[in-house]
Simulated scan of single mutants.
Amino acid sequence: MAKKSGAAVRFTLGDLSAAVDALAPFRLAYDWDNVGLQIGDPAASVTNVLIALEVDNDAIDAAVRVKAQAIVAHHPLIFRPLKNLREDSVSGALIARLVRGKIGLIAAHTNLDRVKEGTNGALAAAMDLQDTEILEPLPLHDDLKFVVFVPPENSLSVIDAIHRGGGAMIGNYSHCTFRSTGSGTFIPGEGADPTIGVPGKLEQTPEDRLEAVVPEHCIRAVLEKVRDVHPYETMGYDIIRLFDAEPSYGLGLIGRLPVAMKLEALAQALHKACDADATSIVGRASTRVRRIAVVSGSAGGSLAGLSPARCDAVVTGELGYHMAAEARDRGLNVVLLGHAASEKIFAPHFARQLGNKLADAPGGGPKLHTHTRYRDPAQTVAVRSATKTSRRK
């Protein structure tokens, strides 16, 4: 929420973090990752933002030039818990520069890899891929479906109990359930103290089936609240994990080129579009490809789920030697752009999305700048073969 300063309304670092979270939810990051607001005061005013692949001295210099109070970086600067903050270390010196310069830092790493318009969306846009779908969907919600069976006269109290436990919310609506009526059958056993029926006799009684969505972290509280009001000695219920039939989140994309082209031509076009240092291919250069899988950075973990039947080629940043050999032996065509080249083009792509998101912010939000001047640490060396010549004496 933008903060008021006198009559003016300020856009803050916290507002920027919330906007990034809305576009690429931080909860989507892998457990080993570290994303979100890493450096800075959430209440600090922000009028200029630099979007960059990672934080190095060149990126900080660029931020200083544009008077940025915040950097949104793809690669986290603070990745593991800090045991100390020493300026004789590379990361320590960079952190100190940001703190002294009062430049906040927000990291959007694997959460940005798992949204359709993130890093992979930028690479897909460079190829004008069409009909794109998530390559590796995240099939599970963090929500559960809670189903409970209750006498009709107790349904409203149970619905309220589900709500008080933290369930039955959909958007801005509470007490959201589906209710259907049927018949429940049971025979109370010896020693039972049934609300309805007698031990040893088959009982058939009207019951409502109530269904509600419950966040996973609330399910224990919901069970406790419902048990408090449920009339049965033994409450019948189901807990169902939800799957998304049309997943919105996941790693990578797959789609079609507007027209088929040779693998070599695709590699050359991407080399130019991504300003790559060196681009290589796995497969025959003359092979015509159209259905393309995209995994920015490194596609090593995604290779097992890909086959020539599923895609004509994979576009990524890098593969280890053994992964590349496996791709070749399995008949997979691959374009390798280099890790930085496959990801740095996200900056202008993400800047457009963030600009649209902040269009209604006070004053149109902060001014967005991009920094894309990155090179892979390993540089290609052009080696000329020596030609032996002989002289006559």
Rank of each mutant, 00 (worst) to 15 (best):
S5Q: 12
A7Q: 13
A7T: 10
V9N: 04
T12V: 06
V20D: 00
D21F: 13
A24T: 08
D33V: 09
D33G: 06
D41V: 00
V46Q: 00
V49L: 09
I51L: 15
I51W: 02
V55D: 00
N57Q: 13
I60E: 00
D61I: 07
V66R: 13
L77S: 04
R80S: 10
L82D: 02
D88C: 08
V99P: 09
G101P: 13
L105Y: 08
T110Q: 07
N111K: 12
N111G: 03
R114D: 03
N120R: 09
A122D: 04
L123T: 02
L123K: 05
L135F: 05
H141Q: 11
D142E: 15
L144Y: 05
K145G: 01
V148N: 02
V148T: 12
V150P: 02
V150Q: 04
E153D: 14
A161R: 08
M169A: 03
Y173E: 08
T177W: 13
G184M: 11
F186Q: 03
I187T: 15
D193G: 00
G197T: 05
P199K: 12
G200L: 07
V213P: 04
H217C: 01
C218K: 15
R227F: 06
R227G: 00
G236V: 05
A245K: 15
G255I: 11
L257M: 09
P258D: 05
L266Y: 02
D277S: 14
D277Y: 03
A285S: 15
S296I: 07
G300T: 08
A309Y: 11
D312C: 11
G317E: 07
A327W: 07
L337Y: 05
G338Q: 09
A341D: 09
K344F: 09
I345D: 01
I345H: 11
F350I: 07
Q353E: 07
L354P: 08
D360T: 14
D360H: 14
G364I: 02
G365F: 10
K367T: 03
H369Y: 15
T370G: 01
Y374K: 09
Q379M: 10
V383F: 14
A386H: 12
A386M: 13
R392Y: 11
K393M: 04
